[in-house]
């Protein structure tokens, strides 16, 4: 039998103290980017797990390639663009997003339970995960750094218009705002409004206009 995981209070090897090696860098500065200490730590962890026989390095490479090359916001852009030109697809997307997204071949990890949120002139949707970094991977790929960071997670639910201003976005007068905090395994995809001046465009051309941020709700789409 193996030990039960899940109790990390004081008394565990790492609980209740702040060691220099834990922070990596001085307080007030976010450790990580370009941080050589963390690079060495991860390298050591990988070789340890390979040596113990728990991890196959080739699988790591495949995971990285998947999320760098194959799974990203172009998937979501495809979904959104199709919903603009095909009213029946749009209806299916708004009724059962998981199934509608699966029609296009997208699904899986962190997209098991999808909900699509339709932006309208009256209502603008914004998605956040205040507690961690929940994000719809199959349609948007890996979350951007800002989505996982304290400034966005703390402020999106309290002052979403202030957050939008950081993205250079101002909503029109009369557009109310609804913020969705992803606190469960449900993942949200914002369906932005189709930009004006795109009548007759095909799905591929429309998809090229759809930005990742517009599908999180931190962007809106301008006329091309």
């Amino acid at each position: 039998m193996h030990k039960t995981v899940g109790n990390f209070g004081a008394g565990t090897a790492y609980g209740g103290r702040v060691a220099a090696g834990d922070t990596g860098q001085a307080a007030g500065q976010v450790a990580g980017h370009g941080d050589n200490t963390m690079a060495l730590r991860v390298e050591a962890l990988e070789s340890l797990l390979v040596e113990k026989g728990y991890v196959d390095p080739a699988a790591l490479d495949t995971i990285i390639t998947t999320y760098e090359r194959d799974v990203g916001p172009r998937n979501g852009a495809h979904v959104v663009a199709l919903s603009w030109v095909d009213p029946e697809y749009r209806q299916r997307l708004l009724t059962d997003a998981t199934a509608a997204i699966a029609e296009l071949g997208y699904g899986g990890r962190q997209g098991e339970h999808m909900v699509a949120l339709e932006n309208t002139p009256d209502e603008h949707h914004l998605v956040v995960c205040t507690l961690c970094s929940c994000y719809p991977w199959p349609v948007l790929g890996l979350p951007p750094t800002w989505y996982k960071s304290a400034p966005y997670r703390s402020r999106a639910v309290l002052d979403p218009r202030g957050v939008l201003a950081d993205f250079g976005v101002t909503l029109p007068e009369g557009t109310r705002i609804t913020v969705h905090d992803s606190t469960a395994e449900v993942r949200y995809l914002v369906v932005p409004m189709r930009p004006p001046g795109t009548d007759g465009w095909d799905v591929e051309a429309l998809a090229a206009l759809v930005t990742r941020d517009s599908m999180i709700g931190t962007g809106v789409l301008a006329a091309p």
């Binding site: 990580g32 980017h33 370009g34 941080d35 963390m38 690079a39 730590r41 991860v42 390298e43 990988e46 699988a59 790591l60 490479d61 995971i63 990285i64 999320y67 760098e68 990203g72 916001p73 790929g141 890996l142 951007p144 750094t145 800002w146 960071s149 400034p151 966005y152 402020r155 957050v163 950081d166 993205f167 930005t211 990742r212 941020d213 931190t218």
Partner: peptide
């Protein structure tokens, strides 16, 4: 909030390995 471009997925190679 500091926005970043869509193709910027990682900021260091160790982040790729950490994810995987």
């Amino acid at each position: 909030v500091v926005p970043e471009p869509e193709d910027e997925r990682f900021h260091a190679d160790w982040e790729r390995r950490a994810l995987a």
